[in-house]
């Protein structure tokens, strides 16, 4: 097969304009951050931003100063995923670079079409030895009847540091439209030097006994998972327990060098505040820098 034919095949697959079982709309974004020696100290530069379809980044900026983290907002103008959407987000952070990624608004997962076609989102985060990545997207709102898989893969090398979260709210409680049908699965895979340190899957199926069962979701409509790698043993866990009021809806633990904070509850704001507060506690321990709240969260 020639390169031409293969390009052509991809193009016809991605063009969409069909609404049957094979409906497929792909969008991707690949970012790379590298530390560059310019006039003064090392500066983290966005050295690649390749995109296809409706995924973009705003111009990177440096609210903490040029020598500090490079902040980037990821934009997905459609604002949500429908049947057949395939979103692929890739970010690579090189040695000595420090990137902070967030989004300007909540992402939405819409009800599947009449064929029940699923959407898919895959986020791949790669951090080289000596790099730092903060992955702090705003929450995902999953509407009734949505079907799809949200996969987060984190590949670390050597002393790479990474902190991130996924916050998901099910249904539209304000409109009394609970997540009563559909099936959404969240998956996490974190490796260091190719070896898995944390694997987790969270299928959300409102018809399954675990959706209400205490061993499972326990009726929670909002969940959050925060991870952090590159912290000193146990110091961070103790700091979080000290700073955040104890409650049965959240807990923190550290295993195989990965700190995991989990929330299972009913309130989007409670989950968000918990994660943001935890990040503010962890950031100085992880990076030696105070948290610098992205202004977009306040708008």
């Amino acid at each position: 097969m020639t390169a031409f034919e293969s390009l052509d095949a991809t193009a016809s697959m991605d063009s969409g304009h069909r609404f049957d079982e094979k409906r497929r709309w792909a969008a991707s974004l690949a970012l790379a951050f590298e530390a560059r020696q310019e006039s003064g100290p090392l500066v983290t530069r966005l050295t690649r931003a390749r995109h296809q379809g409706p995924l973009r980044v705003q111009r990177p900026f440096y609210p903490e100063g040029q020598a500090d983290a490079c902040h980037v907002y990821l934009l997905h103008p459609p604002g949500g995923l429908v049947s057949g959407d395939e979103l692929s987000i890739e970010a690579t952070v090189g040695n000595g670079a420090h990137a902070l990624l967030t989004t300007p608004a909540a992402a939405k997962l819409y009800k599947a079409d009449s064929h029940g076609v699923a959407w898919a989102q895959h986020t791949r985060l790669r951090v080289d030895d000596g790099g730092i990545l903060e992955w702090l997207p705003q929450e995902t709102l999953c509407f009734d009847g949505s079907r799809g898989e949200q996969r987060t893969t984190i590949d670390l090398a050597g002393s790479a540091r990474c902190l991130g979260w996924e916050i998901m709210a099910l249904g539209r409680p304000a409109s009394r439209l609970p997540f009563a049908s559909g099936r959404v699965e969240q998956r996490f895979c974190l490796t260091r030097n190719g070896r898995p340190l944390w694997l987790e899957r969270q299928p959300l199926d409102p018809q399954h006994p675990r959706f209400q069962g205490r061993w499972g979701q326990g009726g929670a409509t909002v969940q959050a998972t925060l991870w952090a790698v590159g912290l000193e043993d146990d110091q961070a866990v103790a700091a979080l327990r000290e700073a955040l009021p104890a409650a049965p809806y959240w807990a923190v633990t550290q295993r195989h060098g990965v700190l995991l904070l989990r929330y299972l509850g009913q309130e989007r704001n409670q989950a968000w505040d918990l994660c943001q507060h935890a990040w503010e506690v962890l950031r100085p321990l992880l990076t030696g820098r105070q948290a610098c709240v992205p202004r977009i969260w306040l708008t």
Partner: peptide
Amino acid sequence: LGPVLPGLALASALHET
């Protein structure tokens, strides 16, 4: 494959304290 025990995971982390 993979366990799906979010409630048990929360309970187990709470057990630490």
